[in-house]
Design a protein around this nucleic acid. Structure first.
Length: 153
DNA sequence: GCCAACGTTGGC
DNA sequence: GCCAACGTTGGC
């Protein structure tokens, strides 16, 4: 069992949007960064837990808990010429981009802001805290994950 | 809207 | 294979 943090802009797709999906699950398409892809393709396992993070919004922070809900498979949008995520170099035989499905796991009692997280020395090594970090998918340690869960209970 | 960080692209 | 130019991310 591994732990992750996945960023999403709430104006585009929020934790509430995930929870509102018919099966409370969503293909995490549109990732076009190799490191983030590799995490999904190579390291994630069904059942891994995810801190669902809201970025580029008024109060960036952890919005809820999700989970990895599928094995990795090719991101359909790379083959779709009409998609903003279309990749002319990807083929069905040799897909370049992979994703997993993300599903709602549980609510936290409150949103935990980035500002608050920054105040805990227990979390000072989190990659999220490091300046210039732009990766949309980050590994989280068990300790960090459990510490944050406690804050939200 | 600004700007630092940093990944990607493409000419050489 | 180097590296300048460019584009994107994301907090502020």
């Amino acid at each position: 069992m591994k732990y992750w943090l996945m960023k999403s802009e709430p104006d585009v797709f929020s934790f509430t949007d995930l929870k509102s999906r018919p099966n409370k699950t969503e293909p995490w398409n549109g990732v076009r960064n190799y490191q983030a892809r590799n995490f999904m393709r190579d390291d994630m396992q069904v059942g891994d837990l995810i801190l669902f993070y809201h970025s580029s919004c008024e109060i960036p922070g952890i919005a809820g808990i999700a989970k990895v809900n599928s094995m990795p498979y090719p991101d359909d949008t790379q083959f779709n010429k009409k998609s903003e995520y279309f990749d002319p170099k990807a083929t069905i035989e040799n897909p370049r981009w992979f994703l997993i499905d993300v599903a709602f796991e549980k609510d936290l009692k409150r949103h935990i802001s980035l500002e608050e997280l920054k105040g805990f020395k227990e979390l000072s090594d989190m990659r999220l805290m490091q300046k210039g970090n732009r990766l949309s998918i980050l590994p989280v340690t068990k300790k960090e994950f459990e510490f944050i869960i406690k804050l939200g209970q």
